[in-house]
């Protein structure tokens, strides 16, 4: 007689898997990676390769030899962390920078909390911020290496648009003067930025990734939109009050890794809130803190710190902003 299989309902399951979701995020990063390979050539490939491989190997080694758990590197989450980290480094970084960053990201930020799903802070961002405070010179050297399609830019002009603006403002120049001197244009920023991290070269490629993620229902648009919206509104207020001293919102949005952070870093499942309300508050918090750091802080950009600060509030947000309950309030008619 046939032994029937018995299990509680439901008896069918959706096709989504952790692995599939992570793979979708990697696919969404592909346009940015390709653009950066176009601009930075071998350097971009090297960083992405070292980052990915190191993260995967470190996670495997920790699971296998230290905590003696079943290795779960097949779910692509470590590979994604490595790739994200690599895409957030200056293009000319040496290989050991991304190696150290990966060690910190996986070893400290992820595995010491208990692995996938347990970490409080976004591992790739922890790795990046660790590098930023430990190796400030390398991490702010925006010289671009030569690629097959483009010659390298020498270090004197290799600064990011943001740091140029910040420096110019501190010298007492007005925004118009800075723009005139440096020949910034939005088209340039949208398709090939003047300087910046590997993955941030083209805002267009990042937005393509966002569209892919939303269409595939990997993420909901709440977080990226609330970050971008709040940055635009908040920095717009500053700009309207004093256009002389503050860059306009479009410039703010297109520079300094805001898109990268809003689309790929802040939306990390593990370190973002669960409910829609929580997501919006989280996004607005990131937006406001970013603008404050940019305009008043020591660093030219601020989204990395803003996301990490808001990561810390996620458990609270989850606790206080519950989804709308069906049966809580009686609304008749």
């Amino acid at each position: 007689m046939k032994k029937l299989l018995v299990s509680p309902a439901p008896h069918i399951h959706g096709k989504e898997s952790t692995r599939g979701l992570m793979r979708d995020v990697i696919i969404a990063l592909a346009p940015s990676l390709l653009v950066s390979i176009y601009f930075f050539g071998f350097s971009a490939i090297k960083l992405a390769f070292v980052g990915t491989i190191t993260c995967v190997l470190v996670e495997y080694a920790i699971q296998k030899y230290i905590i003696k758990a079943k290795p779960s590197v097949k779910d692509y989450s470590a590979a994604l962390t490595g790739l994200l980290l690599a895409l957030n480094l200056p293009p000319n970084s040496p290989w050991w920078i991304v190696f150290i960053g990966s060690l910190v990201a996986i070893g400290i930020a992820k595995m010491s909390f208990g692995g996938l799903g347990q970490n409080l802070f976004n591992p790739a961002l922890v790795g990046r911020v660790f590098l930023l405070v430990s190796f400030p010179v390398i991490m702010t050297d925006w010289t671009t290496p030569a690629s097959w399609f483009r010659e390298g830019i020498d270090s004197s002009t290799g600064a990011t648009a943001l740091s140029i603006v910040k420096e110019g403002l501190s010298k007492g120049m007005s925004m118009d003067e800075i723009f005139a001197q440096n020949d910034f244009s939005y088209a340039q920023m949208l398709f090939s930025k003047i300087g910046g991290s590997v993955g941030e070269v083209s805002a267009f490629a990042l937005l393509l990734g966002l569209v892919y993620l939303i269409v595939r229902k990997v993420i909901r648009p709440h977080i990226p939109l609330s970050i971008l919206g709040s940055v635009a509104i908040f920095s717009g207020i500053f700009w309207l009050i004093s256009p002389e001293n503050y860059p306009d919102p479009v410039f703010t949005l297109l520079t300094g890794g805001i898109l990268m952070g809003a689309i790929f870093m802040a939306t990390d499942y593990v370190t973002s809130p669960m409910s829609s309300k929580g997501m919006v508050i989280y996004g607005v918090g990131i937006g406001i803190i970013t603008v404050l750091i940019r305009f008043y802080g020591a660093y030219p950009e601020g989204i990395s710190f803003a996301i990490l600060i808001m990561n810390a509030t996620v458990p609270l947000l989850n606790n206080y902003f519950k989804p709308e309950r069906f049966g809580k309030e009686v609304k008749n008619g």
Binding site: M1, K3, P8
Partner: peptide, 18 residues
């Protein structure tokens, strides 16, 4: 054995099921 069980490994869950 007359059946296979494919659910959360818990006697309590299993006993409510069958």
């Amino acid at each position: 054995k007359t059946n296979h069980y494919d659910g959360y490994s818990s006697c309590a869950v299993m006993s409510t099921l069958y």
